[in-house]
Simulated scan of single mutants.
Amino acid sequence: MFHFIDPEKPRPYRRKAQATFIVSVMETSEKSENIHKSAYPYLVRSLANHLMYILHHDDETTDIYFLTPEQGFYKLTYRKGEEETFFKRIYERLEPLAASQLVINNDFYDDLPEEMWNGDEITKSLSESGKKLDRMNLLPAPFPLEEYLTPRDMRHLKKLYGIGGLSYGNLSARRDGHSFWMSASGINKADMKTVGEDFLLIRGYDPDKNAIKVSVPPNITPKRASVDAIEHWMIYKEHPEVGAIVHIHAWIDGIRATEINYPCGTIELAKTVAELVRNSEEPSRAIIGLKNHGLTITGTDLNDIFERIEGKIIPQVPMS
């Protein structure tokens, strides 16, 4: 659904179902030195899955910038007389995203064994790795949703999607053949301490409920699993030799990448990344690019990943 918003008073579109894909559309003639910084708050304020930020120029050309919650940012330029081909290009960009299926529901089970309530060596390594990402400047500051949304809109977002914050990047490590520890959603990954809040034990995926299965300690209000849990689960399930996965919003030259920028947390993105890992020369040590988004990196363990990417990371993700 297209949702047209007024720059002066952007109104949110409150869905009645998760599956409703909202593209907010906003027009302006005001120039900005940093269009992403100027436009991104409108994506958030309108509670959209995608924003089309239309910027008109004096020379009768128009740039349409596309923004995603994952900070994807690219543009198409319209010139007079290109209506037919131009709108086809817009459709080709948006249709795969709008038709994709989210897997962001969680099923929590308060059955985590007591000996794991305070974590283990794996959660300790995740905590240390989160600090490494911070030292490498690979943990952008979480977007302050509460500064742009009313309490009512925050409640709506949490009820519909379970979102309480927007943070970027995640990491996980295999515990055994059936489960893995993963950083939770919306947390400070440079300061992970608590099981059930910072670390979650992912036990699998329930296709009947379309939900990620999570084990937590009793008597705790758990944070939600990262939206990328479905992607990590697919990789661990298929490749027993993969011991850890890191996802960052950065880039490395010369890598294979997805061709469509599917939203985070969709089956389509997970399957595409899993296929690229499968077809890589060494699935247990793959580096996969996510178009307009970042990297998914597999390794035998977390140390293996950091040793391989040291000195190769490009902070800016190429957009196209």
Results as ranks from 00 to 15, higher is better:
Thr194Leu: 05
Glu259Asp: 11
Phe199Trp: 10
Glu268Met: 13
Asp206Gln: 10
Val195Asp: 02
Ala286His: 03
Gly164Asn: 15
Tyr262His: 14
Trp233Asp: 09
Ile212Pro: 14
Ala211Met: 09
Lys223Tyr: 11
Ile212Lys: 08
Leu171Met: 13
Gly186Val: 13
Lys158Arg: 15
Arg174Ser: 08
Ala190Arg: 10
Lys271Thr: 04
Tyr262Gly: 09
Lys158Met: 12
Pro283Ser: 03
Val227Cys: 05
His239Tyr: 02
Thr194Ser: 11
Met182Asp: 02
Ala244Ile: 06
Lys158Phe: 12
Ile163Trp: 08
Ser280Ala: 01
Ile212Phe: 11
Ile248Lys: 12
Trp233Arg: 06
Tyr205Trp: 07
Gly186Arg: 13
Cys264Ala: 12
Leu166Ile: 14
Ser280His: 06
Val277Trp: 01
Ala257Leu: 02
Ile163Leu: 14
Asp191Ser: 13
Asp191Leu: 14
Ser215Gly: 07
Lys189Cys: 05
Arg174Trp: 01
Asp191Val: 04
Asn261Phe: 11
Leu160His: 11
Gly243Phe: 02
Glu282Lys: 14
Ala270Asn: 06
Val242His: 02
Phe199Ile: 11
Leu201Ile: 06
Ala250Gln: 06
Thr272Arg: 09
Val273Leu: 01
Leu166Asn: 12
Ile163Asn: 01
Glu282Met: 10
Arg155Asp: 15
Asp253Ala: 06
Asp208Gln: 11
Met234Ala: 02
Ser226Ile: 10
Trp181Cys: 06
His156Arg: 06
Arg278Asp: 01
Glu281Arg: 09
Ile267Ser: 04
Leu200Met: 00
Ala286Trp: 03
Gly265Glu: 02
Asn170Thr: 10
Gly164Asp: 10
Tyr236Gln: 01
Lys223Ala: 15
Gly186Tyr: 11
Thr194Pro: 09
Asp176Pro: 07
Pro217Trp: 05
Ser183Trp: 07
Arg285Asp: 05
Met154Tyr: 04
